[in-house]
Simulated assay, not measured.
Amino acid sequence: MKIRSLILPVVAALIIGAATTWGAVTVLRPTEAAPTSTEFTTVKVLRGEVGSELSLNTVAEWPPIPVGTNRAEGVVTGITVSSGDEVGQGAALYTVNLRPVIIARGEVPAFRAIEAGVTGPDVAQLQQMLTDLKFYRGAIDGSAASGTIAAIRAWQKSNSLEQTGSISAADLIFVPALPARVSLDTALVYRGATLTGGEAVLSGLPAAPTFSIPVTEAQSTQIPGGIAVNITSPDGGMWTGITGAQERDSESATVTVAILGDNGESVCGDGCGQIPANGQSRFPSRIVTVEKVSGLVIPSAALITGADGSPAVVLETGKRVAVTVLASARGMSVVEGVDEGFLVRIPGKRSGQ
């Protein structure tokens, strides 16, 4: 028992001493020299094309602006204008009890009958309409004298109406500007509908619809302002716009990118009539995020940056060559400064390792 108790401490001391000696060797041993070259693969510089685009839907919409109120009472017996039609002075919009409701230019809404002896700006507006329609040649003085009454009767005759010489407020809807594209509220004005007067039935449309593209937050970062958008029109043609301001909706986490026409022109040009006046219309579109550029192409991963921030590549031989980057997209770059067919390094394991 005494011999065994003496052996155990000796063995333990030997183990501890060995461990200490290994630790000293491990810590004090000099580190190995770093590899003289970084592992890499190579790729050949070839001619090609680099570009990028997104395929999304463009939304077109005519934003309506209320411009006119109906004063007629009765049943709608006919609709004489379609949504989006351009109308001018004296155009009939719809009929109530077979009597036409006429549009005319003027800031003052129709609010009373215009007949002999009545004066005011609404009379002047009516005189302007009658002048434009070749029924009146007198002064536009806002006074319904005999010449104005005679013109009213002539106008009534041309519309197959009783020649009373008096125009009711129900006969006219004055709007601020004409000619204009207009839209009727089809929920209120349709054949057989009953009107009681006071309905806001008429909206004016802008000269051109608005265009926008709804995108995600991630997509919005790829779409800077001023880049081209090619929109396929309903007839199969092509409209070209450019991206504008972005509007973010925090609740839905969506971004709306405005699409503008070039030099202040409308996106749809003379083809805007193809777009329905009511609601939103969607058209397939391509957003060119990076214009296509042809030249010598290399993977973008082969590019390195010098201390001065200038780009370069490293040839297979290890020689560093400064380059100019003309375009980059989808992991590839078009460069100048290196010859076609050369092999350039890409950091990574050697082929076959």
Results as ranks from 00 to 15, higher is better:
F211D: 14
I346N: 08
G237Y: 03
P9F: 00
M332P: 03
A24K: 05
A322H: 02
S203C: 11
N159D: 12
S300F: 02
A13E: 02
P214I: 04
F174H: 06
I173E: 10
F40R: 07
E86P: 02
A301V: 15
L343A: 09
A18L: 13
R29K: 07
V87T: 06
A170M: 02
V175S: 01
S183D: 03
Q89Y: 04
P63F: 00
G244F: 03
L195V: 13
Q156E: 10
N159R: 12
S294V: 15
A144R: 08
T254S: 14
L296N: 14
F283W: 07
E251Y: 04
D249V: 01
S294I: 12
V101S: 01
R99C: 01
E162V: 15
V175W: 01
A169R: 06
E217Q: 08
R29I: 02
G237T: 10
E107T: 05
C272N: 15
T254V: 11
N57D: 13
D262E: 15
L161I: 14
F40E: 03
L202P: 07
G106Y: 02
I275P: 08
E61G: 12
G120M: 06
T95I: 07
P121M: 05
L202H: 01
V75F: 03
V175N: 00
V290S: 06
D262P: 06
A154H: 10
T58Y: 00
K44V: 08
I114A: 11
S233Y: 03
D308R: 03
R153I: 12
T194S: 12
D339K: 10
A33V: 12
G271I: 08
A228P: 08
L202T: 04
T31S: 11
I173Y: 01
T77Y: 00
K134W: 02
T232D: 06
T186N: 11
M332Y: 04
W62G: 04
V325P: 04
L202E: 07
